[in-house]
Simulated scan of single mutants.
Amino acid sequence: MTIHHRAAVLGSPIAHSLSPVLHNAAYRALGLDDWEYGRFEVTEAALPGFLADLRPGDWAGFSLTMPLKRAVIPLLDEVSASALAVDAVNTLLLAPDGRRIGDNTDVPGLVAALRERGIERVPAAAVLGAGATASSALAALALLGAAEVTVYVRSAERAREMSALGERLGVAVRTADWARGAEALAGPLTVSTTPVGATDAFAAGLTATPGALFDVLYHPWPTALAAACAERGGTVLGGLDLLVHQAVLQWERFTGRTPGPLAAMRAAGEAALAAGA
Rank of each mutant, 00 (worst) to 15 (best):
D58E: 15
A208H: 14
L217N: 14
A271V: 04
A132G: 13
M1R: 14
G166R: 05
R180Y: 00
T255A: 07
L51A: 07
L94Y: 04
G109I: 03
A139C: 06
A204S: 14
P20F: 03
A201G: 14
G38T: 13
A184W: 12
P195V: 10
I101H: 10
T235Y: 00
R174W: 00
A147N: 04
N104E: 08
T258Q: 15
P220I: 02
Q246W: 05
V191I: 15
G38Y: 02
F202E: 13
R70P: 00
L189M: 11
G38N: 03
L249C: 04
I119R: 04
A267C: 01
A176H: 11
V9C: 09
G61N: 04
V236I: 11
G187M: 10
L169G: 11
P261E: 02
Q250K: 05
H23K: 06
V9Y: 08
G118N: 09
E252A: 10
F50S: 10
D106P: 13
R232T: 10
Y152Q: 04
I3C: 03
P195L: 08
A85D: 13
R28V: 13
V79T: 15
S63T: 13
R168F: 03
T105I: 12
L243I: 04
L64R: 05
H23F: 06
V72A: 12
L273M: 12
V236A: 12
Q246C: 12
L68N: 10
G187C: 12
E270K: 02
P96M: 08
D58R: 14
H4G: 11
R158I: 00
E167M: 11
E167I: 11
P13E: 04
E252D: 07
P20K: 02
G276A: 03
P96W: 06
A137I: 03
S135H: 14
G238F: 01
L169A: 10
S136Q: 03
V153S: 00
T255Y: 07
D177L: 13
L75G: 08
A264H: 06
A81M: 02
G129P: 04
P96K: 07
F202L: 15
P48F: 08
A45Y: 01
L243N: 06
L213S: 11
E167A: 15
P96A: 03
R6Y: 08
G166Q: 08
R174C: 12
L169S: 09
S80T: 15
A95K: 13
L32C: 12
L92S: 09
R117C: 12
F40I: 01
L128S: 09
V248Q: 09
N90C: 11
A146S: 14
M265C: 03
A198N: 00
T258H: 12
P48C: 07
I119A: 08
